[in-house]
Structure formats: C-alpha cells, structure tokens
C-alpha cells in the first residue's frame, strides 16, 4: 500500500480504518500517560496552595479536564452522527457509537469530582444550579444515545435514531458552557476562556492544561480501541457480511 495513493474515501472503508486505528492507539496511549504524569507532578509538587481554598483546589486538575472532555466529546459525537446522517456513511456512525461511552464516563467523573469539590468549599455536595443541572442532563443525554442504540435491533435504524437523538441534544452543550454567565449560579465562572487572561497562577494553569491534553489523548486511545471492537462486532453480523464491501478477516487483522 503506497501512502501517496491514500485518499479519504479509502480511509472511509473499514478495512483501512481498522489497522490505522490499531497503529494510532499505542502512540495516543503513550503520549496520554506522559502528559498525565507531567500534569500530576506539576499539579501536586510544583503548583502552590490556593489562597482561599487551600489544597482542596487541586481537584481542579481532574475536574476541569473531565468537564471539558464531557462537552468536547459530545460535540464530536454529534458531529460524527450528523456526518453519518448526511453522507449515509457507516464509519461515521461507528465513530459516534465509539465516542458515547467515553463521554459518559467523563461526564460522570466531572459530576463526581464536582461534588467532592463542592462539599468542602461551598458546603454542599450538590445544588440545583444551572451549571450542575445542565451537566447532569448531559449525562442523561449520553445514556439516552447509548440506550437508544442498544434497544433497536436493526443496526441501520439504530444508527440513524441515536444519531438524531445525539444531534438534538447538542443544544445542551452551549447551555452548560454559558450557564455561569447567563444566570447567577453557585458554580464560579470560567477561569480559562478565549476572551480574557487566565485567572490562575501560571503553574496551576500549566498543570491543568497538561492534564487536559492527557485526557484528550486518553480519549483518542480508548475511542479508537472501541472503534476497532465495533468494526469487528459489526463485521461478524450476518447481514453485514452480505453487503458489497466484505473485507476478509485476514486482511483486516493487520
């Protein structure tokens, strides 16, 4: 296979996607470990104590990256879902299917670490303010997409229905992000934004960004792992084997 002849349409076919994903996984995983190790070192051993929260603020190093990933992955899932609906492309639907569980896990982690941060600082595990409530809705949206897909036997209908559901739910993402600006909430505003200088000491910010990059690389690795599972599982299904493109197992197992 000469690389110069690689075109997008080639990658959209599953026999090319499967080994490509396989080659990318170790790099993403390795880089994820390195970035997270650097972030943890900086976060625990270099970053100073916070002036108002003491050491409790260190939860930010998992909370904010997890929350960012929960929103980013939802947008990514909706994008692949929309692409799948528009192009009627199976690999796009598979990407969306592969992203959902990882997004749900990060949403759960954002909520859990948020509760563990809220208790010592605000004085409450949970409050029904706009930020927390909209993030909880995000978790239900992820679960809804996954359950809808699992509950429909016909794969093509399952893909389309869950893609539509994912697209509808995407309105929740800007609501989560801007909730702290649109309404007064107990949750504080954004420390890092496109429009203003970061409201954090430099080492704290660096540690948080390293962790965020690490979480992003981790997500890439596990999503590609799940994509490979989905490709194989769908390949084993009889109705799928009858389709025009039938990659032999020997070829795809690179």
């Amino acid at each position: 296979m000469s690389d110069s002849r690689v075109t997008w349409s080639k990658y959209s076919s599953l026999q090319a996607l499967y080994p490509l994903a396989g080659r990318l996984i170790p790099w993403c995983a390795g880089a994820a470990v390195l970035f997270m190790a650097a972030g943890l070192y900086l976060g625990f051993f270099v970053a100073p104590t916070d002036f108002q929260q003491g050491e409790a603020y260190r939860i930010i190093f998992v909370h904010v990256p997890a929350a960012w990933m929960s929103m980013f992955l939802y947008v990514m899932m909706a994008l692949w879902a929309g692409l799948g609906l528009g192009l009627k492309a199976r690999p796009s639907f598979m990407m969306a299917q592969a992203i959902a569980p990882t997004g749900a896990i990060f949403t759960f982690l954002a909520l859990l670490t948020g509760a563990l941060w809220g208790k010592p600082t605000w004085g409450a595990w949970w409050v029904w303010d706009a930020r927390l409530t909209s993030e909880l809705i995000l978790l239900f949206l992820y679960l809804g997409v996954m359950l809808l897909h699992a509950s429909i036997d016909d794969l093509r209908r399952a893909d389309r229905a869950s893609a539509l559901f994912a697209l509808v739910g995407v309105v929740n993402v800007p609501i989560i992000y801007f909730s702290v600006r649109w309404w007064n909430t107990l949750h504080q505003g954004a420390s890092v934004s496109m429009t203003a200088a970061p409201k954090m000491a430099a080492t704290m910010l660096t540690a948080m960004l390293l962790m965020a990059i690490g979480f992003w690389l981790y997500s890439m690795a596990v999503i590609l792992m799940r994509l490979r599972c989905v490709i194989l599982e769908r390949n084993s299904q009889p109705r799928w084997n009858q389709s025009a493109v039938e990659p032999g197992v020997k070829e795809i197992r690179a």
């Binding site: 100073p48 104590t49 108002q52 107990l186 704290m204």
Partner: peptide
C-alpha cells in the same frame, strides 16, 4: 436555614493574593 460559600474563579498562591 442554609448558608453556602461561593468562591470565585481566581486561583493563586496566598502570597500573590496578599
């Protein structure tokens, strides 16, 4: 009946805050 603390989005070492 209930009081919650609302901290802001600024994080810095105590010396910097002072």
């Amino acid at each position: 009946s209930e009081v919650l603390a609302k901290h802001d989005e600024n994080y810095m070492p105590p010396e910097a805050a002072e």
